[in-house]
Amino acid sequence: MIDDLRSRGYTVVGPTIKNRVVRMSEISSETDLPKGSGDEQEPGRYRMTERGGEMMFDFAAGPDSAKRYTQPPRQALFRVRDETVEEAEPEAPSVALLGVRACDLAAIAVQDRVFLGGRHPDPVYRRRRDALFLVAVNCAVPGGTCFCVSMGTGPRATTGFDLALTELADPHRFLVEVGSERGEAVARGLDRAPADEADITAAREVSRTAAGHMGRQVDLDGVRDWLPAAHDSPRWQDVGSRCLSCTNCTMVCPTCFCTTVEDTTGFTDGAAERAEVWDSCFTLEFSETGGAPVRGSGSARYRQWLTHKFATWYDQFGMSGCVGCGRCVTWCPVGIDVTEELACIR
């Protein structure tokens, strides 16, 4: 499959191990995949483990998501050279993402609503989105911080993919599901056999077992009402005293979309460039108006983020801004757990 996608002009990006972390990077063959490796994730903690065996996707979601390819961390907008303005040509490379989890497919759907669902769809986002070929892999081993079942986004991929794989053991094999015409064209070229009832039952069992081993859960009943109403809860001060405003949670979040513009000047050619870069509502300058920040405290910034993600996102986009991937919990250096904070505030 990797060879076929590369022959069709796609850069294949899949999970690899870099610095003892599963990162999404360009791959050229199955030998680049983290075969026999797993991970352990808890609040503020990530560790790789050696599981052995033939399994290639025996781990939970790492810090990278499809956001890096739908909304890159840095995009040049224009350059000025010798008093001439040069418009930057937006890049929309043909990329095949291998190993996308169900929660990340849900996050792409959230981004589609943000960037394409309004009166002014973003044409650059559309070009990048259309250039993506999505190969989902159904999650078999949720991390200790996952709660996709609570959010209704996983662990089994049901829509939004070109191909979906379920990795099965004894013997090691993959069940392949087709989700688009592009996916069907690739599937036709694979060395494959028709799935029998035992294969289908085994794939369903993988997802059923994963759903029963979520590391976290959250009760969302009435959250659109009680969370905004808890504006004066003392819990905001408590979590604000622990939060470092480091922006880790928003950087690894697959749906956070805030950006700012950054101007730079080259030392050698004197050319100036304006670029759009990822930003975060946890930075002090993010809400600056009239020379002063609207949200000057860490507790106010955390309240803004959590309330938007789980409540007011519905008012803005008609859906939740959280997909339950648990990245914000794992990669918070002080281990702040959104599911715990929501329970306490409630």
Rank of each mutant, 00 (worst) to 15 (best):
A88F: 12
A88D: 13
E89I: 09
E89F: 03
E89Q: 14
E91C: 05
E91T: 11
E91S: 14
E91K: 15
A92W: 07
A92G: 08
P93T: 02
P93N: 07
S94Q: 05
S94F: 07
L98H: 02
L98D: 03
G99S: 07
G99M: 02
G99H: 05
V100I: 15
R101C: 00
R101N: 00
A102C: 08
A102W: 08
C103H: 13
C103I: 13
D104K: 00
A109P: 00
V110S: 11
V110C: 09
V110T: 12
Q111C: 01
Q111R: 10
D112E: 14
D112I: 09
D112P: 13
R113G: 00
V114E: 04
F115P: 14
G117H: 01
G117K: 00
G118Y: 09
G118C: 01
G118E: 05
R119V: 10
H120Y: 15
H120S: 15
P121M: 05
P121W: 04
P121A: 02
D122N: 15
D122F: 04
P123Q: 00
P123A: 01
P123L: 00
Y125D: 10
Y125R: 05
Y125C: 03
R127N: 13
R127K: 15
R127D: 15
R127T: 09
R128K: 06
R129V: 12
R129F: 10
D130H: 14
D130G: 11
F133L: 03
F133I: 00
L134Q: 01
L134A: 03
A136E: 12
A136N: 08
A136H: 07
N138Q: 11
C139P: 14
C139F: 06
A140C: 10
A140L: 06
V141Q: 10
G143K: 04
G143C: 01
G144F: 02
T145S: 08
T145D: 07
C146V: 11
F147R: 14
F147V: 11
F147I: 08
C148I: 13
C148L: 12
C148E: 12
V149K: 13
S150Y: 14
S150G: 15
M151Y: 09
G152V: 06
G152E: 06
T153W: 07
G154H: 10
G154R: 05
G154K: 09
R156Y: 07
T158W: 13
T158L: 08
T159D: 15
T159H: 15
F161E: 03
D162A: 04
L163P: 00
A164V: 13
A164P: 04
L165N: 02
T166V: 14
T166I: 15
E167M: 08
E167W: 06
L168K: 06
L168S: 04
A169E: 14
D170W: 09
D170A: 15
D170N: 12
P171K: 01
H172T: 14
R173L: 04
F174C: 00
L175W: 06
L175Q: 12
E177S: 11
E177G: 08
E177W: 01
V178Y: 14
G179A: 10
G179C: 01
